[in-house]
Write a protein that binds this DNA or RNA. Structure first.
Lengths: 206, 206
DNA sequence: TATAAAAACTAGCAACGCTATATATACGAC
DNA sequence: GTCGTATATATAGCGTTGCTAGTTTTTATA
């Protein structure tokens, strides 16, 4: 029947509209957060920005937390892509340095986004079957860095991630002076950029 | 005059009472936070716990933020003391390992306290003249670890702090599985516990 | 065009941080 | 001891928040 086809197209259009609005909400939340901080991302403000009433937000995300989580996942996607790009365009042996720079640049240029990814959403776990693929992908870019270099691939990747996160976070929260950032990065790269055999030596299992 | 002496003693007693209540507030906040999370540390709940009305809280701390900051500073004091103790009781060459364990133990055993120290109070800065001495003291314990070992004392200490913080935070927020924690710690200690000349070699300025 | 379903809005609840105003308590001078 | 005063504490309420029940409007189908 023709009605079925028409019904299909209508359903598709509705889905598109839904997704577009969802993206609009996420985008508005990001923009407000980056300009005015997450405390200004209120449901009333968001519903204002998208010109819909508050309950519409709840049709897309079950709660304010849900909106933050969605922004965080979008952030992990972008971080993963940025790291992948940095790793792939690095010259031989310079992958650690390149990825380090990309990671810290990401955190520094979108502090509110980084904040929601790591400080504000305990509802986006990693060590869990329900881990979002975007988060797995981002971490996999760090795993790639040490592939075959160390017998403790996962451990050394986690340690590298922890160091990057620590620097990013202590910088974001004003515990580290920006003035020494270059030296910190150089020391970090030296610690982890252990080419060839040396890597196995320093990072080797006891 | 006798009245002056009496007045003095009264003033002293008032000060003691004030400080006692201040400590009571901080203690209640810590307890609730550790048991039920910081979102349950509300002013009404706090005033209930200390059996005073809400405005009394404002006589001690100007705002809810002020209470969190006070708890955070108490946390830095305790962290600093714990690190100092760990460093001093370590056998020769084992200081890094000992301090690492103490730091991560502190973070793991009081997650809410650690959270308020690093995630919830941007109003306790470090790179600033107004940095609380408690925070400076805690960091100085990390500086001590690398005293004379590296030409980049501050940078390597900051890097070590960042790594510890990254591990603590990614563990607290469930991004790291606890199962590999031991291996992570061992790898971290190997990275930073570079006895004698090797330290200068790996950490040296280019 | 009439009807059922889906979508959106209005209005309001409870709880929050915070504060202006009122009341009770404790002090110092007589 | 008594009385005014200053200090300490309490009451009550404002504006805003996340969230939702109930109602109205819009949309799709027959």
């Amino acid at each position: 029947m023709a009605t079925n086809l028409a019904a299909n197209r209508i359903a598709e259009r509705k889905l598109r509209d839904r997704q577009a609005r969802r993206a609009q909400i996420i985008s508005a939340a990001r923009r407000i957060a980056e300009l005015e901080g997450w405390s200004n991302v209120t449901l009333r403000r968001l519903s204002d920005e998208i010109s819909y009433s508050q309950p519409v937000l709840y049709a897309h995300f079950g709660s304010r937390e849900g909106i933050l989580a969605a922004v965080a996942i979008e952030g992990f996607q972008e971080l993963g892509l940025a790291l992948e790009k940095a790793r792939k365009r690095a010259k031989r042996g310079g992958a650690v340095e390149s990825v380090t720079a990309a990671y810290l640049e990401f955190a520094a240029s979108s502090p509110a986004l980084y904040e929601v990814m790591f400080s504000l959403s305990p509802s986006v776990p990693f060590d869990d079957p329900a881990t979002p693929p975007e988060l797995r992908f981002a971490f996999s870019q760090l795993l790639e860095l040490f592939q075959g270099l160390s017998s403790k691939l996962e451990v050394i990747s986690e340690l590298f991630w922890a160091s990057l996160h620590g620097i990013a976070e202590l910088t974001r929260t004003k515990r580290f002076p920006r003035s020494r950032q270059k030296e910190r990065v150089r020391a970090l790269v030296e610690l982890f950029n252990l080419p060839g055999d040396e890597t196995a030596q320093v990072v080797k299992a006891r």
